[in-house]
Design a protein around this nucleic acid. Structure first.
Lengths: 101, 101
DNA sequence: ACTACAACTTTGAATTACAAAGTGCTTTTT
DNA sequence: AAAAAGCACTTTGTAATTCAAAGTTGTAGT
């Protein structure tokens, strides 16, 4: 591995802007509903659902299917692994940015 | 546009890690040869060439075909537009990051 | 009963990314 | 001088990714 490679620490799963957005939202907010994510990120529900699935399969986020009264309410939260992976990615980004600041 | 959308300021051209890497390298180093970029980023030459072409077509970088003695030497540099676009992207990223710091 | 919303899954198409091989020119090696 | 190798590509083909649209199931409201 080249020593100077500025992108070697980046996590491929976060190359996608929607997945990046989800992670950044879930880092600030403990639990966020599907619908809120959809509105914040301005994506179609199908598109969002597949990205959430990808993140869940990689154990970066977890799903909680709950209720508000009798109505189903699905919320998403970041996992420990997710926090760790995302922080590493951000650190790699910051390192890259600092390289030229 | 949603007010809270953390990814709306990101530039799609920089979603790709190789193009991101090129820009970050060219922000620190005024002129970098094709071969140096290739080694730093650890990519195949064909792959690098297409990404450089994309960046050039968008006027984010410029190519200089020169010589070292009699040997051809191609170098790449960032353009004014490129600097501006890249800085905006980085600022959007930082804003996103600061959102949860 | 009908409409609407929520949270999906499935399908299909378009775009993107990438490796591998080929090209033309030059330089170095034998 | 011939062969091998390097540089900076281009072309080709495939694999992966991304995304919108439509379909699905279940609940809620009117």
């Amino acid at each position: 591995m080249a020593v100077n490679n500025p992108i070697s620490g980046l996590n491929k799963i976060f190359d996608n802007r929607i997945r990046l957005g989800v992670m950044s939202i879930l880092t600030v907010n403990e639990e966020v509903s599907f619908n809120d994510l959809k509105q914040m990120l301005e994506v179609t529900d199908g598109n969002l659902a597949t990205h959430l699935q990808t993140l869940e399969e990689s154990k970066l986020i977890k799903v909680h299917k709950g209720f508000i009264g009798r109505k189903t309410n699905t919320t998403y939260a970041i996992t420990k692994t997710g926090s760790k992976s995302f922080n590493e990615h951000i650190e790699a980004l910051e390192k890259m940015i600092k390289g030229f600041k």
